[in-house]
Design a protein around this nucleic acid. Structure first.
Length: 167
DNA sequence: AGCAAGATCGGT
DNA sequence: CCGATCTTGCTG
């Protein structure tokens, strides 16, 4: 099983997000190497998407999303939970995939706690990193879609798009 | 400098 | 449904 390359991530988030389903997130921590099947993701796409943090423009927080795909965008929400996002597309085209679930663990806040992912992972490059990356599989998965979770504030149009993809 | 809200979660 | 908990971004 091969580590995903830059090309995988520099595509549009609506291709990358469902493409991550069935692949393995790999964590190398203190001697142990663990892999987790990705089962639930959401797409956040560009400055027009009112649910996407990039709709606020380029800020200190959202800056990682404006970079080339393949790096992580981590932020703290509700003062308690780190959210794990994978940046996609090309520079100055802010998009990201929120990892909502892995096999045996539902919820973006719960999974970062379980995996020990904190702010130090912000901007980590999945191609270069020696502690986190994603590997391809031969899995052919069928998936469902739904509106994104927790974005009612984004207005009727953006909150109702089926940009959540899950197994 | 102050404030309201948030890509959540677990307990009533 | 509600509180925990604190950073962010907007307003003044």
């Amino acid at each position: 099983m091969i580590k995903l390359t830059r090309h995988f991530y520099t595509r549009d988030v609506l291709e990358v997000a469902p493409g991550l389903l069935g692949k393995y997130l790999v964590l190398q921590t203190s001697g142990a190497c663990n892999k987790f099947l990705i089962t639930d993701v959401e797409a956040y796409r560009g400055t027009d998407d009112l649910a996407c943090h990039a709709s606020k423009g380029l800020t200190k927080r959202t800056e990682p999303m404006f970079r080339q795909g393949g790096i992580l965008y981590i932020y703290l929400i509700y003062g308690m939970y780190y959210m794990l996002n994978i940046v996609t597309s090309t520079e100055n085209n802010p998009q990201a995939v929120l990892i909502r679930g892995i096999e045996g663990c539902n919820g973006p806040g719960k999974l970062t706690k379980k995996l020990g992912i904190d702010q130090s992972f912000n901007r980590e490059d999945l191609i270069d990193s020696n502690r986190i990356w994603v590997i391809d599989t031969n899995n052919t998965v069928s998936y469902k879609t739904s509106p994104r979770i927790g974005v009612d504030y984004a207005g009727d149009y953006w909150k109702n798009l089926h940009w959540r993809f899950y197994i």
